[in-house]
Nucleic acid binder design. Structure first.
Lengths: 324, 324
DNA sequence: TCAAAAGTGTTATCCTTACACCCATGT
DNA sequence: ACATGGGTGTAAGGATAACACTTTTGA
């Protein structure tokens, strides 16, 4: 076998910009919030310079430089490079690698540049009002989203197409069988239907309907990246103990439930939530109780960090044989 | 708000090569096989040129050019850019975006370049022999992997470190609670322990133990990418009907079970597997029966493609309330 | 007739869902 | 006293895991 250097390897020396995007999430005032720039129109992003050993260290470097705060849990989301959706205004091609970051503490605003670029937290439901089912079905769904989707269905060119559209809407938006994990799928469908045209760098949509925008827009495809992050997080809290990355060191079970509800965007069953938590052995009592918001004082709990080492997490759906 | 072109946007015009890698999987002779180059030492990879509208079309373009065969199911895996693991030999920085592709049919070898670059299929268990539990615990696990991992544990600098190592090995490699989804975690642990040094472009490992390589090596970090693909696929077959992308149009339930077993790397319980399949309504009888390998003739089934539109797939683990 | 694989039926167990209820505190 | 949230017990239903058994072919 020839040495590595001699082997031909089909790689292009492309003049393409590589950008790192971050969906930084924190729970503030029982709301899932996202760090943004420019009044909520932009996710923080930075260049990937070749001088970092890994992508993640590159990300951590500029996020911490920009926010003066160490980053906790970080995971890669997706790599986008759609020509039409990223940077149509500049002629330059951009590959954007996005990350999800969870933080427990507030980002120090002092260190950041003042003025237009000042970072700020925004509730993610500002961008996706139809995703917040904590108080029942969101009004914007019935009032705005569904009527426009129905018009989009009717605008199909032929019956086969119309049937297809109806079926897709039914799967993703049916109230009776709402699946909170489909954040990205729903956003992509709305985008395809021309209902979420973005502020900058978007291709003119195929079917621009009157009535315009639903939910706050963002520049480039940042709202799509945000949708990816929310979808990932909602799926993940179901099989990995990531909520605790967003919680303070001590918390009540009620606070924990509110946190999960904020992320999942729907109310949970109190008693069963509690049973689920303790039968998984995720938390332990600190011994203290909280002086709180009315009602009986609640025990404080802390996350058992050890279990990150103890568990490998299952994930079964196959009828496994015991005769291995 | 200023127009998009005026807004400063922190992107670097990096001179970094962008590469697309493909883990192309097919089921051949009841084995999960992967398309490779150079006698199995390399995954097919190609450049991302800026002239494609999306990353996926870029990938499809060169894969189809190289193999003269249309690509079916495709999904993005991960983006790596570790300096130490990708291309240490050349000085150039490479960002490699990897994809998983599933194909039902053989790739046409005629169209490909002859000689050293001729593509060929390899069983993926050639690279990860410890992952094949279809015939019970693989011998290489007890004979090779575990003894070396134990030496790695003993080689820890202090007791805390030793305890940590023991725990990680226990979680990922314990026979009693083997989790077939942890392919990537296990590979990364073996890599960290210096047990899977790769042929080219790898940083000299911290703890090179005698006894050398376990499983067939690959160049660069391609084995890591392959591990990512296998892990993703094993996890995915549990909640999405992707196996059918690998099956012929008509198949028996026995063949289907063998296919899932090949991917999951472990034997399944026949009766329960059948119940699971038909209670999910995934398949329907074609009416035909197969002339087969001995024993009673089996009914042939086909995948109900419609269900891809009918279902949104659940994925619950939270105690949801009905009082929405 | 026997091996080999297909195919059917039934039972025990666990987990999820749901309901009903009591407890401790502030106002 | 009563509103408010904390906290506990238990029953019904469904899904999984396991077992036992019959059927149909080829050699």
């Amino acid at each position: 076998m020839p040495p590595a250097a001699n082997r031909p390897r089909p790689t292009a020396f492309s003049s393409i910009a590589i950008e790192l995007n971050a969906v930084l999430v924190a729970l503030i005032d029982e709301q899932p919030q996202v760090l943004t720039l420019e009044d909520g129109a932009l996710l923080p992003s930075g260049p990937f310079e070749g001088d970092h050993p890994t992508l993640q260290t590159g990300l951590r470097a500029w996020v911490e430089r920009q926010t003066h705060h160490p980053l906790g849990y970080v995971e890669q989301l997706y790599t986008f490079a759609d020509r039409s959706r990223a940077a149509a205004t500049s002629g330059r091609r951009i590959v954007s690698i996005s990350y999800l970051g969870l933080t427990r503490e507030l980002i120090d605003k002092e260190g950041a540049a003042a003025g237009e670029h000042e970072p700020g937290w925004q509730s993610w439901y500002r961008y996706f009002p139809w995703e917040d089912w904590r108080g029942g079905a969101p009004v914007s769904l019935a009032r705005q989203v569904m009527p426009r989707l129905r018009r989009w269905i009717d605008a199909a060119s032929d019956t086969a197409d119309r049937r297809q559209r109806r079926q897709r809407v039914e799967i993703n938006f049916a109230e009776a069988s709402w699946n909170e994990d489909l954040v990205l799928q729903r956003y992509e469908l709305l985008h395809e239907a021309g209902l979420v045209p973005e502020a900058g760098g978007r291709r003119p949509v195929a079917n621009p309907l009157p009535g315009g925008v639903i939910g706050a827009p963002m520049h480039y495809d940042h709202r799509r990246i945000l949708a990816t992050g929310i979808a990932r997080l909602r799926a993940k809290i179901k099989y990995r103990p990531v909520v605790f990355e967003l919680m303070p060191p001590g918390f009540t079970l009620g606070q924990l439930q509110l946190a999960v509800e904020a992320l999942a965007g729907r109310p949970l069953h109190k008693q069963n939530f509690r049973r689920l938590i303790d039968q998984q052995g995720l938390v332990e009592e600190t011994g203290a109780v909280s002086a709180e918001t009315g009602g009986r004082p609640a025990k404080l709990y802390r996350f058992r960090r050890e279990i990150l080492l103890e568990r490998a997490v299952a994930g079964t759906k196959l009828p496994l044989s015991r005769t291995v």
